[in-house]
Structures are given as structure tokens and as C-alpha cells.
């Protein structure tokens, strides 16, 4: 399990990374935290011609609030985001979700951008960014662009980035104070990719009706899924048990799970509905209505 021969180049900044990608073409690969790419290389399932290491690229590890959004640099380590007060204050779902991403040692090295660029549909961060309507910051030879999450994730391990583009960060809308959040994850073991994971963020107006709801699931399709149908059921009404059930019942129609050795497709479909129900219940309990 030794990686195949590869060339190596270290990029000092994003522009240099883009230049290197342009120079080496589509067989080059950006190396971030390495928690997904290096195992694939050790199995010789990935064999890039050149690794472009952006671990020392300047200015990619920020975690800050900007114009009502949380902006996280692509190279921010998952563990740093998990323990960041800034991140927790703006998007309290983040630390909860990150605790399910591998183990501390993986998160010490693994980056937010690495997970989003790798685009594993079973991974937690892509689902979170999709569910919250986040935007991906992408830089290429022609400059920077912002891509909405639902336009960014195109399929298993496939994104809207061109070969010569680098993911530089992600922008997540700040959740209003009092938002209740919850993650429900069904995994065979702690730290594994979930069979199914769901995430909920919900905010209630003073009259107790839902004025913000965000729902997402991972492990249920070739891309992370925002559950618009379930959100629509709840929007503007009181989140009663019946309303939660009605929302959960729409889930099966919004997803396209496939089976694998851990669970057949039907099981995933059933569990997605169940976990949405559970996540909603918990998130609602955690909401705080401003006095």
C-alpha cells in the first residue's frame, strides 16, 4: 500500500496553485489535509501526476464573520473550526457536525476545503454547506467566482470546479440568534461515514411559527441533499408533531439512495425520514424565542 510515483510542488499562495494547475493540467491534484487523497493514493486508486500542496499557501485558514456570513478559508483545519467560538457563534451547527467527521487526529489535519473539494456524498460537511445554502469560493486563472452549494456538488467526487480552479473557502449564512440546530447520524461506528446523516436548523417567530428552516441529508444520493420539500411543509406554520411527520414523509421522494455493504437503499430511505424527524424534534427543542 505504497503510493505510486508522483511529482510534488508547493504553492506559496492561491495564485501559484492556480498557475501550477494550469501548467500541469487535469492530472494534477491539489493536496490539502490529505485525509481522503492520501489513502486513495496508498490504495493506488488515485494516481495524480503532480501533487500541488497548498498546506503552506498564505491566507487560506481564516475563520471570520463578514457581511452576515461566516467565511471559512479552505485550509482551516476541521479541528480549528470545531473549537472556534466565531464559527460556533455564527453557525452553531458546525461544531456539532464536525464532531462526527472522523476522529480528532483526522480533524487536526483534515481541512474544510478538502472535504468540500473531495465531495463525498456520505460526508457531513458537504451536506451542511448544501443544507444551509452556503456558497463556495473558487479561484481560477480568470479570477474568483462564487458557486452556490447546490450548483457545486454534481455527483460522487465531482464538483463544478474546473481542473485549473482551487477552492479557497466557503461562505455560510449566519443563523439568527435562537436558532435550534441538531445533527442525527446513523453510523455503524463512531467516526465512520454515516449510513445516513441529517441536519436541521430551525428558527421560530414570536408567534411560534417557523420563519427559518434548513434541512439536509448525506448518504442518500450521489450528492448531498437539501430537503426543500420538507422545509416547505414547515415554513410559516407551527412545528407540531403532525407537521414534523408531514415534513419527514416528503423526504423519501427527495432522495435517491443506493445500497452498499452497510445498508441497502430501502433502509437508507427509511432512515432518512426517521432521522429528519428526530433532528427536527431536537432542533425545535433547542430553539429560543426572543422575549
Amino acid at each position: 500500500m505504497k503510493p505510486p510515483p508522483v511529482k510534488y510542488a508547493r504553492a506559496g499562495d492561491v495564485a501559484e496553485a492556480v498557475a501550477l494547475l494550469t501548467e500541469h493540467g487535469s492530472d494534477a491534484k491539489v493536496l490539502a489535509g490529505g485525509q481522503s487523497l492520501i489513502p486513495l493514493m496508498n490504495f493506488r486508486l488515485a494516481r495524480p501526476s503532480v501533487l500541488i500542496d497548498i498546506n503552506r499557501a498564505a491566507g487560506l485558514d481564516g475563520i471570520r464573520v463578514e457581511n452576515g456570513s461566516l467565511v471559512i478559508g479552505a485550509m482551516a483545519r476541521q479541528r480549528d473550526v470545531e473549537t472556534s467560538d466565531v464559527a460556533a457563534g455564527a453557525v452553531p451547527l458546525l461544531p456539532q457536525v464536525l464532531r462526527h467527521v472522523g476522529h480528532v487526529t483526522n480533524r487536526n489535519r483534515g481541512t474544510v476545503g478538502g472535504s468540500l473539494a473531495h465531495a463525498d456524498p456520505a460526508a457531513e460537511l458537504p451536506a451542511l454547506v448544501t443544507g444551509l445554502g452556503g456558497e463556495l469560493l473558487v479561484q481560477g486563472p480568470g479570477g474568483s467566482r462564487l458557486v452556490a452549494a447546490e450548483d457545486y456538488f454534481l455527483g460522487t467526487f465531482t464538483t463544478a470546479m474546473e481542473f485549473d480552479e482551487v477552492l479557497t473557502g466557503v461562505r455560510l449564512p449566519r443563523l439568527p440568534a435562537g436558532t435550534g440546530v441538531a445533527v442525527e447520524e446513523l453510523a455503524r461506528r463512531h467516526g465512520d461515514f454515516a449510513i445516513v446523516a441529517t441536519m436541521a436548523a430551525i428558527h421560530l417567530a414570536a408567534d411560534g411559527t417557523v420563519d427559518l428552516v434548513r434541512l439536509a441529508a448525506s448518504g442518500v444520493a450521489s450528492v448531498p441533499v437539501r430537503l426543500h420539500g420538507a422545509e416547505a411543509v414547515l415554513a410559516g406554520i407551527a412545528p407540531t408533531a403532525e407537521a414534523i411527520d408531514a415534513a419527514a414523509e416528503t423526504v423519501a421522494g427527495s432522495i435517491k439512495p443506493t445500497g452498499d455493504v452497510h445498508a441497502p437503499a430501502d433502509y437508507r430511505r427509511d432512515m432518512a425520514g426517521l432521522l429528519v424527524r428526530r433532528a427536527l424534534r431536537t432542533a425545535i427543542q433547542r430553539t429560543e424565542v426572543a422575549a
Partner: peptide, 18 residues
């Protein structure tokens, strides 16, 4: 698992050059 610059790290998931 080793400690690299103060943090636990999987040595099989880093290249020496890094």
C-alpha cells in the same frame, strides 16, 4: 499516530516532504 507541530497526526497520511 505521531505529534507534528503539537498536534496528533496520522503519519501514513502525510508525505515526508510535507
Amino acid at each position: 499516530t505521531i505529534i507534528v507541530d503539537g498536534r496528533s497526526t496520522r503519519a501514513c497520511l502525510m508525505l515526508a516532504v510535507q
